[in-house]
Computed example of a mutant assay.
Amino acid sequence: MQLCDEHGLASVAFPAISTGIYRFPADRAAAIAVRTVVDALPSAPGVTQVIFCCFAAPSGELHQAVLDAFGSPCA
């Protein structure tokens, strides 16, 4: 998010990685990713869109559940 702010970027995408071959727990990965972005957004006020790029439906569902817990609108 800091780099987005420094370079004047309005959007950024984060891939859901490490949960496949590296077997990092997908639920923890989703929670960490979403929490980190939510916490960092105030430091990058120009960012208007964040995309969590999930490569499988279960990963997308986990990310959506975490986003829903924040009451975050998303498409």
Rank of each mutant, 00 (worst) to 15 (best):
M1Q: 08
Q2V: 12
L3R: 15
C4W: 02
C4E: 06
C4V: 06
D5W: 09
D5M: 13
E6K: 11
H7Y: 10
H7C: 12
H7A: 13
A10T: 10
A10F: 04
A13H: 03
F14V: 08
P15W: 02
P15N: 07
P15R: 05
P15F: 04
A16M: 05
A16T: 03
I17K: 11
S18N: 12
S18T: 11
S18K: 08
S18V: 10
T19N: 05
T19F: 02
G20A: 07
G20N: 06
Y22F: 15
Y22N: 15
R23C: 15
F24W: 13
F24D: 10
P25N: 02
P25V: 04
P25T: 03
A26T: 05
A26M: 05
A26Y: 00
D27A: 09
R28V: 08
A30R: 01
A30E: 00
A31G: 04
A31C: 05
A31K: 03
I32V: 14
A33C: 09
R35C: 08
T36D: 09
V37D: 03
V38E: 06
V38K: 07
D39Q: 11
A40P: 03
L41F: 00
S43T: 14
S43M: 13
A44C: 07
A44G: 05
P45G: 11
G46I: 07
G46M: 10
G46C: 12
G46S: 13
V50H: 01
I51D: 05
F52M: 04
C54A: 06
C54G: 02
F55S: 09
F55N: 08
A56D: 11
A57V: 15
A57H: 12
A57S: 14
A57M: 13
P58G: 07
S59D: 10
S59G: 12
G60R: 04
G60F: 01
G60V: 05
E61S: 15
E61W: 10
L62S: 01
L62T: 01
Q64M: 12
A65E: 03
A65D: 04
V66P: 00
V66Q: 00
L67V: 06
D68S: 05
A69D: 03
A69M: 02
A69N: 02
A69P: 03
G71Q: 07
S72M: 12
P73W: 03
